[in-house]
């Protein structure tokens, strides 16, 4: 069974008299351990598709399944739990919690929803930071880290709860190209090591070769390339 199955998903936004079709009847599936690269021009609906896949928004029509869980069947708190336990997000604009250290940012996803921060959680956070080349920076708050380091902390946070699906939106846009490639390589390593399914949105042609499969999106629809 694919980690993610998107079936005729459509997302419309009302805009005055008209409706914008941001995602136009998209079919897509991603397997465990597969690293999918999603590219396409600005405004083509890439971010919107990620919000649907990540249970951040509901499709106007169509179905989205995570493993065998139909996201449309979940109510509010269940969606929160799915986001916390089964999905890892890396946002374009990093979005770490500014008053928490790197380690605490990772542990925060454990605390949400009433989880406990135990020895295991601490070990895992430490190990992830180590893997991401941030050993020794765990006590620094985001302001004390460089852009690339912050993006790596965000990746650690996304992986903290051992998700089934990793959703990454333009991770390199704030980084210079060399650093960008390093970060994506790290991401690729983590996907391989953990066998997690991943979708990465990027404009950056220098990193698209790191994906297993490249899918192009134009005007809300997918064009396999």
């Amino acid at each position: 069974m694919p980690a993610l199955t998107i079936d005729k998903a459509r997302k419309e936004f009302p805009s005055g008299e008209q409706t914008i079709v941001a995602v136009d009847d998209v079919d897509l599936s991603v397997d465990d351990g597969e690293f999918l690269v999603l590219e396409g021009p600005s405004g083509s609906g890439k971010t919107t598709l990620l919000t649907l896949a990540g249970a951040l928004a509901t499709p106007t029509s169509g179905s989205i399944r995570l493993g065998d869980v139909e996201l449309g069947d979940l109510e509010g708190n269940e969606r929160s739990a799915v986001r916390r336990d089964r999905i890892g997000f890396v946002f374009q604009s990093v979005n770490l919690i500014p008053f928490l250290s790197a380690t605490e940012n990772l542990l925060a996803v454990r605390q949400l929803g009433g989880g406990r921060v135990d020895r295991d959680a601490r070990d895992r956070a430490e190990q992830l930071l180590e893997e991401l080349g941030l050993g020794g920076r765990g006590d620094n708050v985001p302001d004390e880290l460089s852009g690339g380091q912050r993006q790596r902390v965000a990746i650690g946070r996304a992986l903290m709860n051992d998700p089934d699906l990793l959703l990454v939106d333009e991770p390199t846009s704030a980084l210079d190209s060399e650093l960008g490639r390093q970060v994506v390589e790290l991401l690729r390593d983590e996907v391989d090591r953990r066998g997690v399914a991943a979708i990465m949105v990027t404009h950056d042609e220098r990193v698209t070769d790191l994906g297993d499969r490249i899918v192009k999106m134009v005007d809300g629809a997918l064009v396999e390339s």
């Binding site: 990540g54 951040l56 509010g76 708190n77 929160s80 739990a81 986001r83 916390r84 336990d85 997000f89 946002f91 979005n95 919690i97 500014p98 925060a108 996803v109 949400l112 929803g113 009433g114 946070r157 709860n161």
Partner: peptide, 16 residues
């Protein structure tokens, strides 16, 4: 608002 949106996105419930 932004911080809360992020917290919700990574799994916080309104209750939290």
């Amino acid at each position: 608002v932004r911080l809360y949106a992020v917290l919700k996105a990574i799994g916080a419930r309104t209750r939290d």
